[in-house]
Each structure stands twice: as structure tokens, then as C-alpha cells.
């Protein structure tokens, strides 16, 4: 079965990004496909490569990047929500005249159409937020 996932709350303050990660890991282990995870609202903050959590804590961003690498999960960050919150990839940083970019490996920035497309192309859509 194809399961799409929407993460709509940021890391650390809320449990949503952790629950979503555990859920996706379990879905993949059960043989389901998780073609895409879409990050919206403050969920876009999961994608920052600049977070430095204490060493004895889980690294939420790295967990997700590893999932993308190992299982080919398409991690899409909403561009409109990301720009509001200062999340830019190299292309966007250049286009907007900003001196830095912060999107971690495995994540890509794209439009809300990717969320709708995920809803159309998957059998289930599961939302984690606050």
C-alpha cells in the first residue's frame, strides 16, 4: 500500500515529527511504500541542517535525512511555508539575494501541488501535527 505522510508541526517543541518518523519507519518495515513525506506549517523547520541538538538526544533532521537516503523517501518542504520561516535551499537563497541556505540533504523545496499530488497518488494520507 502507498502511504503519504504530512508533517505539519516543527521539531522538538512538538512530538509530531518524532511520531511521524517512527510511523514511517514502521510502515516501510511492514513492506508498505512511503513515496513522499510533505512538510508544512512549522514542519518545514525539520529540514534545517543547522540544528545542533545535545549529543544524548535524537537528531530529528538526521533521522529523516537517513530515511531519504536508505529508502528513497521523497522529503518535500513547502516553499511558501519555508520562505516565511527562513528555510532556503541554495537556489532560493541566490534568487532571494540571501547569504546562506540551510536545507539538509535528502530534503527538497517545492510547491503545495506536491501535497495535493501525494493525496491523489497514495492510498492513504496520514497527518502528524499539533
Amino acid at each position: 500500500m502507498k502511504i503519504g505522510v504530512l508533517v505539519s508541526e516543527g521539531p522538538y517543541t512538538h512530538e509530531a515529527a518524532d511520531t511521524a518518523y517512527k510511523f514511517v519507519t514502521a510502515a516501510l518495515a511492514a513492506g508498505h511504500e512511503v513515496p513522499r513525506v510533505f512538510f508544512y506549517h512549522d514542519g518545514v523547520n525539520v529540514a534545517t541542517r543547522l540544528s545542533v541538538p545535545p549529543q544524548d538526544e535524537r537528531n530529528i533532521q538526521q533521522n529523516w535525512s537517513a530515511l531519504a537516503k536508505e529508502h528513497g523517501v521523497d522529503l518535500v518542504v513547502c516553499i511558501a511555508a519555508a520562505q516565511r520561516r527562513g528555510m532556503l535551499d541554495a537556489n532560493e537563497a541566490e534568487r532571494q539575494g540571501k547569504d546562506a541556505h540551510n536545507i539538509a540533504e535528502g530534503f527538497r523545496i517545492s510547491g503545495l501541488g506536491q501535497l495535493i499530488e501525494m493525496g491523489i497518488q497514495t492510498d492513504r494520507l496520514v497527518t502528524f501535527g499539533d
Binding site: 506549517h41 511558501a80 503545495l112 501541488g113 501535497l115 499530488e117 491523489i120
Partner: peptide, 19 residues
């Protein structure tokens, strides 16, 4: 909170998908 506004933004984009 921003949820209402960003929900509306999804609706506007989603309208183009003829669902």
C-alpha cells in the same frame, strides 16, 4: 495561529488539480 491561512493556501493550489 497560522493554520487557517495556510489551509486556505492549500485549497487555492489544490483547486487547480480538478479534484
Amino acid at each position: 495561529t497560522i493554520y487557517a491561512l495556510e489551509s486556505l493556501e492549500v485549497v487555492l493550489i489544490g483547486a487547480a488539480f480538478e479534484q
